[in-house]
Design a protein around this nucleic acid. Structure first.
Length: 503
RNA sequence: GGGCCAUUAGCUCAGGCGGCAGAGCACCUGACUUUUAAUCAGGGUGUCCCAGGUUCGAGUCCUGGAUGGCUCACCA
């Protein structure tokens, strides 16, 4: 290690070295040693804080001339010989501080001059307003609370590199203030969601994350292993089947807000672990779930954003209930000109799919093809919010059949900005029909569809004891938060999105 | 998984046709007691993502790989 020693005019000794540390890191490491030599602890004790920055900025008149104590991270620093300005940032924002040598004394002022952007300090001083009109703390004393050993990202551009932003979210939060706003909004949305439901008499419950059988959705699970039991366990892909067991047990109104896991692709709309809320209400049906959905989303928008009309990526969305309700078959007819009501069998449906150049797995049924038409040609055109209802039975293995037309189920999905946000139905409570649906799923599984459901005998057994007529709703919480915070990527609303490790 | 693009200083980015590695901020040295992207004078601090190849010579061209972004497929 090549080391070069030099001393600056203020008695601080530095060693520049040629090892793995950058020059800026080396300087900061050396300062720690020098501070300790001078009796200054670089990782100080807790600082009694009287105010946060925002309280001071928002009511300067009441605090003018008053002494305040606050702590924060140095974000900018400007020296002027025997005086200096800096901005410190706390959880509420930034405030300017002013330090003078004739106030602090030579020793402390010299210590201040050695502080770096990124260091966390506690300051005590009086509030005043500078010539240029900025509310500022005239510091009478300060102490170093935590020495930062690495330089912060650039003050003007912030941290732009998306890879670094996700991998080192703490830096993103430090230097990109709008990021903090998104996650504060996320926290509020989830909190309001919880109180919205509990206020309406729903009971929050926790069901297993590790399943012996991953059900309730069409998705590939993550597999893990329990050593003592020596068995495979799956991380849950949905909370649905356990929540319905609770309804069988007499818990009439339940919900679970939590993380689920799907072993599938990653994209701007998909993270392997994500958050859903599922709600089940006995003596209700999917119409009731529509009302619940629109009321909940409207109340979240109102309470968190203060408005029912928002902009998402330049498009306007109005959450004022009631939202439009459209039949899937009607929407497909409107967009593609094809009336599935007049297509009576699977063969005719496959023929029309070929005409529209829709490449599908062989042997699909009429309902599956209708659903494919909807997804392919209609879904991304639904700016919403809108409810699409009456889903084919083949793609809805857990939903009750429509009384008048058993080819369909009493199911809807809510769409916003062309994305599915919610999925709900009148729950299938006929155990014999449910067994048939599972059997159909299993046969699809056998023929290669590894996302199809597995037979869940235990769930069937629960239904055989009798489940009351029940409405169920699932909401993709991350996606809803994306809409409400105008975030283009799901990674912008998940603090630590799944990333491949570096190297 | 396929296609396209990106990776250069701590950060944000430029580097035409292959010819000594660049700017701003940050940093270092000095000046400056109400500045605010402070200013002034001086200083470039680097595994050009990695490994090969072509070439007298590669940040630049070729091959392979890594990570990320967008997109298609899959899905919510």
């Amino acid at each position: 290690m090549i080391t070069k020693k030099f001393t600056n005019g203020r008695g601080f000794t530095f060693y520049m070295s040629a090892d793995h540390l950058s020059d800026q890191e080396q300087v900061r490491h050396n300062k720690i040693a020098t501070f300790r030599q001078q009796g200054v602890e670089p990782y100080g004790d807790k600082y009694d804080v009287s105010h946060y920055s925002r309280e001071i900025i928002t009511k300067p008149d009441a605090l003018d001339g008053k002494t305040v104590r606050l702590s924060g991270r140095i974000m900018t620093k400007r020296g002027h010989g025997k005086a200096g300005f800096a901005h410190i940032q706390d959880s509420e924002g930034q405030i300017q501080i002013y330090l003078r040598e004739d106030r602090l004394g030579e020793k402390d002022y010299m210590l201040y001059k050695e502080l770096d952007v990124g260091d966390i300090i506690g300051v005590t001083g009086e509030i005043f307003t500078t010539k240029k009109g900025e509310i500022t703390v005239n510091v009478s004393s300060f102490s170093l609370l935590s020495k930062s050993l690495r330089p912060l990202p650039e003050k003007w551009h912030g941290l732009r590199d998306v890879e670094l932003r996700y991998r080192q979210r703490y830096l993103d939060l430090m230097v990109n203030p709008e990021v903090r706003k998104v996650f504060i909004a996320r926290s509020k949305i989830i909190q309001k969601m919880r109180t919205f439901l509990t206020d309406r008499g729903f009971l929050e419950v926790e069901t297993p994350v590790m399943h012996t059988l991953a059900g309730g959705a069409n998705a590939r699970p993550f597999i893990t292993h329990h050593n003592t039991l020596d068995m495979e366990l799956y991380l849950r892909i949905a909370t649905e089947l356990h929540l319905k067991r609770l309804v069988v047990g007499g818990m009439d109104k339940v919900f679970e807000l939590g993380r689920i896991f799907r072993n599938e692709g990653i994209s701007t709309n998909h993270n392997p672990e994500f958050t859903t809320v599922e709600v089940y209400q006995a003596n209700a049906d999917y119409e009731d779930m529509m009302v619940l959905t629109e009321e909940m989303v409207a109340s979240l928008a109102k309470e968190v954003l203060g408005t029912l009309t928002i902009e998402y990526q330049g498009k306007s969305l109005d959450f004022t209930p009631p939202w439009p309700r459209r039949d899937m078959q009607d929407v497909v007819k409107e967009v593609t000109g094809i009336d599935f009501d007049s297509i009576v069998d699977d063969v005719a449906a496959r023929k029309i799919a070929r005409e529209k150049n829709l490449e599908l797995m062989p042997g699909l049924s009429r309902g599956e093809i209708l659903f494919a038409f909807f997804e392919e040609f209609c879904e991304d055109k639904l700016s919403g919010p809108i409810f699409i209802k009456n889903y084919p039975v083949e793609v809805s293995p857990l939903a009750r059949r429509n009384r008048r037309d058993p080819r369909f189920t009493d199911r809807f999905e809510a769409f916003m900005a062309g994305r599915e946000i919610a999925n709900a139905f009148t729950e299938l409570n006929d155990p014999i029909d449910q067994r048939g649906r599972f059997e159909q799923q299993v046969s699809r599984r056998v023929s290669g569809d590894d996302e199809a459901h597995m037979m869940d005998e235990d769930f069937i057994t629960a239904l055989e004891y009798g489940m009351p007529p029940t409405g169920g709703l699932g909401i993709g919480v991350d996606r809803l938060i994306m809409i409400l915070t105008d975030s283009p990527s799901i990674r912008d609303v998940i603090l630590f999105p799944t990333m491949r490790p570096k190297e």
